[in-house]
Design a protein around this nucleic acid. Structure first.
Length: 741
RNA sequence: GACCGAUUAGCUCAGCUGGUAGAGCGCUACAUUGACAUUGUAGAGGCCACAAGUUCAAGUCUUGUAUCGGUCACCA
């Protein structure tokens, strides 16, 4: 071993210790943020980006304003930031817009609970105005938490364009959107069966329902001793609301009763039922006869519609309590069920009890059991034909007649929007096929209020309140996904025809979890195509769920959650990012363990030490001289180039997991293990030509590797970059250095 | 019930348009005061779920079977 290797060369002192992420990350982020280069306008102003360059834009899926960062967010931020940094380095006008979501129901109920606990007051005690004031203050106070945590991941978001779902600009967008759709007849008010959540005290959309399997009892009985037909039901308490009995038209057993009407008193309630024939009835199930309760079942409501049968009475209220008089009066539905069964037994009407498996509809957010109720609500008609005045959507021409459903299909079918991985396209089409009108009104207070005012029989819809006295605004708010659906363009200033909107819409990419494909992705496509005539994004990249190393879902109750902030502290943001990207093919769930993250911290240190080695041995290098490369050194440069090409093409294909792995592999197992090892002899030899050639090659490998790795591990690469001798790095900030070719 | 996906090394997975298997972690042995407290070299380990078919050739294409997972719908 020669002396030169051991000689402490004149290199920056920080390289003498292992890489310590915690002592650099905050400063590096501040340096980036102060440079202004998260904002593409500044990049253009400083000549970093050409003003005519192509654009690349992503809108951040806004996290809950009151939430904290979890691994799902971290994975999303990692993927998006990698793409944003890559395209920025490629000289594109690159914009990544941050924002937060009000998470209406969740936030309101959180604040309500706190007030209830601290002051013993309900929202009705406080009143609408006071509650909203409190909820807004809470949201405002807690937003910094999630935003600062977002910064910690190294996210190069343009904070000057921050958007909040309830801020003034978004408010205007939502109002305008509602008004436009209302004027086109796509939004209507309808008296229908809604999914009522008695726990959350609001309607919810079909997509917010989760079915839970439970054991239930199927009761078979007659309404009264002289009623000719037995019926089966698992909800006998609703039978006091029956207005018909439905049988299959071909069922010989009941032919003679079709069209007849019977009256009786059922559990103290007088009812009148007509026998109708409907093809929907399955003659094989139960007795083949079905008691029709229009006011408390969607199917029955539709059936009553078809046969012109009375749809009311409503016999259950918003608190899931019986509203009839008699023995059931005021009982909760479950108690009423027991009471009805007891009565049936008393009257000797119960013929059979069987245990069956049943899927019970519950509200996703509150867990409350859904009570179907008839209500006057606002809906979006997805099948109504209208003229789309302006269209840039592939496969749809301006001025053509279409429906929202068709727009959603065409956008994906004609390749306007691509979904990755491919298989989710089928899931998407499948969902649209089964899509019904979307209920958009909610009975909570925190959110965008429906811009409709009533006065006697008059209805007014407008962005602002109507002139004159006596107008009363609709008390309901909009489904949070209504405003979220506008997000790709409302964040860019719509309905104003802003420069941003012209420049950055359609966005390049939407990156989000596959669990909100329907909630959000589909709604964004609907809203964007309708309101702007443009697709919202060219590509949808669906990431999977982050799971633990045993492939279980992370949950607080299992105690297997890994906190990204703790990981960042321990191993650094770079290691955390890489662990969330490598091994994560789009759409696949990702197993994560602390050990994996630790492994990538070692990698960050490896890069650190590669730098130390190279700087040690290039201290005497003369950059101004031309060197003639040895044939091995030429080969190394070729290998370097092909690694760059590989990584580049995987990023372009959105295969970040492959790109990261290949970059990692080149740096560790090619540059460090092979090139550096063989350099030891060359660098300590007396052959000045060979030394000069290798020194130049090592420097080239280092700077190119730093660039190539920067999108994946921005902190360590930038930290090193800042320490490189100026003459060796050419650009001051690695973040805006040119991507190698 | 409908649709979709998975089944490859002990574990987690890659293997695009078909040419007799790869990575990371783990394991074993050796080396190492090393640019590296976070290292290197070498190695073991797979009839690629099963069966049939297409083909000169099949993890790779077709069909069927089994097991596991997911999404959607839902019958009173």
């Amino acid at each position: 071993m020669s002396e030169k290797v051991n000689q402490p060369a004149n290199i920056p002192e920080i390289f003498l210790k292992p890489y310590d992420p915690a002592s650099h990350e905050t400063d590096i982020y501040a340096m980036w943020e102060n440079s202004g280069y998260f904002n593409p306008d500044n990049c253009i102003k400083d000549g970093v980006t050409d003003k005519e360059a192509e654009t690349f834009s992503i809108v951040l899926p806004p996290p809950n304003v009151t939430g904290t960062l979890h691994m799902g967010h971290a994975a999303m931020l990692a993927v998006e930031d990698i793409l944003v940094r890559y395209h920025r380095m490629n000289g594109k006008r690159t914009l990544w817009i941050p924002g937060t979501d009000s998470a209406a129901i969740a936030t309101q109920s959180k604040v309500e609970k706190e007030i209830q606990k601290a002051e013993g007051k309900s929202r009705h005690d406080l009143g609408r105005e006071e509650l909203l004031k409190r909820v807004s203050a809470f949201a405002e106070n807690s937003k910094d938490t999630i935003l600062n945590q977002t910064r910690k991941m190294g996210s190069s978001l343009d904070w000057s364009r921050y958007a909040y779902t309830l801020d003034d600009k978004r408010y205007k967008a939502v109002m305008t959107a509602f008004k436009n759709m209302y004027d086109d007849g796509l939004i209507y008010r309808g008296d229908r069966i809604v999914n009522w959540d008695p726990k959350g005290q609001t309607t919810i959309s079909d997509d917010e329902i989760v079915y839970e399997e439970r054991k239930s009892t199927l009761y078979t009985f007659k309404y009264s001793p002289d009623f000719p037909i037995s019926i089966s039901t698992s909800r006998p308490e609703t039978k006091v609301g029956d207005t018909a009995v439905a049988v299959h038209p071909d069922d010989v057993r009941y032919q003679k009763f079709i069209g007849q009407t019977f009256s009786c008193t059922f559990c103290d309630v007088p009812i009148e039922v007509t026998v109708i024939a409907d093809k929907e009835v399955d003659p094989e199930f139960g007795t083949g006869a079905l008691g029709v309760t229009p006011a408390h079942s969607k199917i029955d409501w539709d059936m009553a519609d078809r046969h012109n049968i009375t749809k009311r009475p409503q016999i259950i209220n918003e608190y899931a309590k019986m509203t009839v008089s008699g023995r059931l009066s005021g009982l909760k539905v479950n108690d009423a069920r027991t009471a009805v069964v007891a009565w049936l037994k008393e009257e000797n009407l119960l013929e059979k009890e069987e245990t069956i498996d049943q899927n019970v509809a519950t509200a996703e957010r509150t867990g409350g059991i859904i009570e179907p109720l008839p209500k006057l609500q606002w809906w979006i008609d997805v099948n109504k034909k209208f003229i789309l005045k302006h269209s840039e959507i592939p496969g749809v021409s301006s001025g053509s007649e279409t429906t929202l459903k068709e727009l959603m299909v065409t956008t994906v079918e004609n390749g306007g929007t691509d979904i990755l991985p491919e298989r989710f396209k089928r899931v998407y089409f499948n969902w649209i096929t089964n899509l019904n009108d979307w209920c958009i009104s909610r009975q909570i207070w925190f959110g965008h209020r429906i811009p409709v005012w009533y006065r006697n029989d008059e209805i007014y819809c407008g962005v602002t309140a109507p002139e004159g006295a006596g107008w009363e605004q609709d008390p309901d708010t909009l489904d949070t996904w209504f405003s979220s659906g506008l997000w790709s363009f409302s964040t860019l200033g719509w309905p104003e025809q802003t420069e941003d909107l012209k420049t950055y819409h359609p966005t390049a990419l939407l990156e989000t979890g596959y669990d909100i494909l329907f909630f959000w992705v589909a709604r964004m496509i609907l809203m964007s195509t309708y309101h702007t005539g443009q697709i919202p994004f060219k590509t949808v990249y669906l990431h999977g769920l982050v799971r633990d190393e045993k492939n279980r879902k992370m949950s607080k109750s299992l105690g297997n959650t890994i906190d990204p902030l703790t990981m960042i502290e321990k191993f650094g943001a770079d290691a955390t990012r890489l662990s969330l990207v490598i091994g994560a093919a789009p759409g696949n769930d990702l197993p994560l363990s602390e050990n994996k993250i630790k492994g990538y911290k070692n990698f960050a240190n490896k890069i650190w030490n590669i730098t130390r080695f190279i700087l040690t041995h290039t201290a005497d290098m003369d950059m101004s001289k031309d060197v003639s490369f040895s044939s091995r050194d030429q080969e190394i440069l070729t290998n370097l180039k092909s690694a760059v090409i590989d990584v580049t093409s995987e990023i372009e294909k959105y295969n970040l997991y492959l790109a990261g792995e290949k970059a990692y592999h080149f740096i560790w197992h090619e540059l460090a293990d092979v090139i550096l090892e063989e350099s030891k002899d060359i660098l300590t030899s007396d052959d000045a030509t060979a030394r000069a050639s290798r020194q130049a090659v090592l420097m080239e490998c280092l700077t190119t590797s730093l660039k190539m790795m920067h999108p994946f591990m921005p902190y360590v690469t930038e930290t090193i970059w800042q320490e490189l001798p100026k003459v060796k790095r050419k650009t001051d900030i690695l973040m805006v250095a040119k991507w190698p070719k």
